[in-house]
C-alpha cells in the first residue's frame, strides 16, 4: 500500500485554480520529486497535505488514514514532517533547541511531570538531547549547538531545518525546495545529506527546481503545470516527455491550439 495517497486534490483561491484534480501516490521508501514551473501549485499541494490549507475538494491519505479533518499538529503525530521554501527556524532559540523542538512529540509527559520532573522525564529529556546532537552531527552542525539559529549562514539554516524535521522521526518528509539559494557546492552537500537521510527508512517528497538534484536523487517525478498533473514517471521518461518540455519551455504553435490542448487532454497521462 502506498504511504501517501493524494486523491483528486483540488484547491481554488477564488477564481485561481491552484490545484485541479491532482492524483498521485508516494510509495514507502521512495523519493518522489514534485516539479513544475513557478505557480504550478507545488507549495499549495504541500500546504494542503500538511493541513495548513483546507482543500476545495479531494482527499489525502497517509498510510490509509484520511487526513482531511485533522489539524497540522495531529498530522505531525501521524508521521508527517516538512521544511519550508523560505526557511522557518525558531530564531530566538539556539541551534540545539530548534532540533529539540522537533522532538516535542517524543516527550509524552503531562504538564505536571514537566513541572516536577522525575527520573523518567529527565531520562526522556536526556535521550532527546542525545538524539538532537546526533542529528546535528548528521547535518554537520554539531559544533554550533549553542549558537542562536538566526546567526547561521544560509546553507546551514537549510541543514538545521532538515535536522529539525528529522527529529520528528517522520515517516514522510516533505522538502520544499531544499536547494533554493544554495551554491553548487552546497547543493552537492545537500544531495549527499539526503542520500544519507534516505537510509533512515524514510520516504521523501521533494519540491525542487534544481534539475541535477531532481534527476540524480528521485525515483519518480510528478510534474504539475498550472495546477494540473501533466506527467509522472521515472526521471529518464520525464526528461523527454513532450508535455513537460512544453510546460517548461512553451510551445511555438498557435496560442489557441495550445489552450485547447490543455483543457482537452489534461486528465493526467501517467507514463509508467
Amino acid at each position: 500500500m502506498s504511504l501517501l495517497t493524494v486523491d483528486s486534490l483540488t484547491k481554488h483561491f477564488g477564481g485561481v485554480k491552484a490545484l485541479e484534480e491532482v492524483t498521485f501516490e508516494v510509495e514507502p521508501g521512495e523519493i518522489l520529486a514534485l516539479i513544475g514551473p513557478n505557480g504550478a501549485g507545488k507549495t499549495t499541494c504541500f500546504n494542503v497535505i500538511n493541513g495548513l490549507l483546507p482543500p476545495t475538494a479531494g482527499r489525502v491519505f497517509l498510510d490509509g488514514v484520511d487526513l482531511l479533518d485533522l489539524p497540522p499538529y495531529h498530522r505531525a503525530r501521524l508521521g508527517l514532517a516538512r521544511t519550508f521554501q523560505n526557511i522557518q527556524l525558531f530564531g530566538g532559540m539556539s541551534v540545539l533547541e530548534n532540533v529539540l523542538t522537533g522532538r516535542h512529540l517524543g516527550l509524552p509527559v503531562g504538564p505536571l511531570a514537566a513541572l516536577w520532573p522525575g527520573a523518567g522525564v529527565r531520562r526522556a529529556e536526556a535521550h532527546a538531547r542525545r538524539q538532537a546532537l546526533d542529528l546535528l552531527d548528521l547535518v554537520g552542525l554539531a559544533d554550533k549547538e549553542e549558537w542562536p539559529a538566526e546567526s547561521l549562514a544560509y546553507g546551514e539554516r537549510r541543514r538545521l531545518e532538515i535536522a529539525r524535521a528529522l527529529a520528528q522521526e517522520p515517516r514522510l518528509l516533505l522538502l520544499d525546495e531544499p536547494a533554493a539559494g544554495l551554491n553548487p557546492r552546497e547543493t552537492e552537500d545537500l544531495m549527499e545529506l539526503l542520500a544519507r537521510v534516505r537510509e533512515r527508512d524514510l520516504t521523501l517528497l521533494v519540491i525542487e527546481h534544481d534539475m541535477s538534484l531532481v534527476m540524480g536523487l528521485s525515483h519518480r517525478i510528478v510534474v504539475l503545470d498550472q495546477g494540473c498533473l501533466i506527467a509522472q514517471g521515472a526521471p529518464a521518461i520525464i526528461r523527454r516527455h513532450p508535455r513537460v518540455i512544453e510546460a517548461y519551455l512553451g510551445r511555438e504553435e498557435e496560442e489557441e491550439e495550445s489552450e485547447e490542448g490543455r483543457d482537452g487532454s489534461l486528465d493526467s497521462s501517467p507514463i509508467q
Binding site: 503525530r77 532559540m93 514537566a114
Partner: peptide, 24 residues
Amino acid sequence: SYHGRALRAIRDHEVTAQVMGVNT
C-alpha cells in the same frame, strides 16, 4: 521544560510549531 520550548516555538513561528506537532 519542553513546554517552554513549545511556547517559544509558538512565539517565533506559530505555523511551523503546528507543523512540528505542537498543539498550538
